[in-house]
Design a protein around this nucleic acid. Sequence first.
DNA 1: CGGTCTCTTGACGGAGTTCAAAGCTAGTGG
DNA 2: CCACTAGCTTTGAACTCCGTCAAGAGACCG
Lengths: 194, 194
Amino acid sequence: MEATIKENVFKTIGEHLSDEECEAFSELPFQKSYARKTIIADEGKVCKYVYFITKGAAYSYYINEDGDKNVIQFAIEGHWITDQYSFFSGKKGIFMIETLEDCEMLVFSKESIDNLCRGSHRIEHFFRILVQNAFAALQYRLTKTNSETAESRYLEFAELYPHFLNRIPQYLIASYLGIRPQSLSRIRKELSEK
Amino acid sequence: MEATIKENVFKTIGEHLSDEECEAFSELPFQKSYARKTIIADEGKVCKYVYFITKGAAYSYYINEDGDKNVIQFAIEGHWITDQYSFFSGKKGIFMIETLEDCEMLVFSKESIDNLCRGSHRIEHFFRILVQNAFAALQYRLTKTNSETAESRYLEFAELYPHFLNRIPQYLIASYLGIRPQSLSRIRKELSEK
DNA sequence: CGGTCTCTTGACGGAGTTCAAAGCTAGTGG
DNA sequence: CCACTAGCTTTGAACTCCGTCAAGAGACCG
């Protein structure tokens, strides 16, 4: 079983998996490599998998009627990524998922997740807490989006995810913050002049 | 056991609870009434409960450094509301929860939820799906906030929650949409002139 | 080393904010 | 049950932040 995922479980629920649970986690997903700039989940199609990144970086986004990209989430080693809505409902997706770097991933189908959860109460617990944490973080992010200026959102982003800054192109960070690349460029200039 | 909550479980996971599970759901929470405009969870204090509304309406919000209210969520009969982050981490809260109308609620402590989840895999499953759905909806809302104009966000809100429009004051809807009451008033005027 | 993708800079425009004041409405107390 | 008041909504005018359009500079890859 991947060490990264073992750590992720412990970090999330503060408990270690049993030997059988570890075995289930190594047998059910399959490993896959993706080159950078590969689209691994496509809007309009059902998103059939949840991805756990063991190496590399990826992001999910949404394209609106005007054709603008809207970044939802960045994910690197030790992070999970999927189109939640599509994955769990089985309906066609609304998000794209694309790699930013060459990636190694553990790929879980819905059956894998369901089997893992059905087979172990602790694992179901793990996934509940995982989503709960993500939900709380997202609520927090939304309040900031609704009430802070782009500058303070950028500063908070830079503080929360300093390792993202050198790894993710600026125009995607701008999109994540809900502004245009030009605006982020200007904000960074202002900040550097202070 | 409250019929509303039974329905809520079935609507969420498409399964009915067993008799024992129903019993647990009636024994563990306590019922409480709150007058309108009562603050039931206070920022800065630990949010110890999850509330399931059986009658009335409430909302959660956040107050930023400038003293502005930022509405996170509205909740009416059949909805759950809490400060997720505080409730699950046991750390001090960042949101306030306040009633909009006289309310009847089922109040669950962390121990109640943990007991319910520990005692029944189906109930843990229910809570996982509940949070998952909320998460997907929130992701969707964030993309809209980041890419649509206030007008189209208002139109979508009005379409998704028509019953909220006559029940919730406009300045709170404005806050939920991330704009000022004056702006929402102007948007509504424009729309009525079309 | 050429081409494409990314970042920067400038000028202008527009959506939403701020400040201020007046008109409504609903809940409270007499 | 009516009148008063506090809270909500509307409107106007000036301003600001960010978006749009456009063009040039820089970086990265084949």
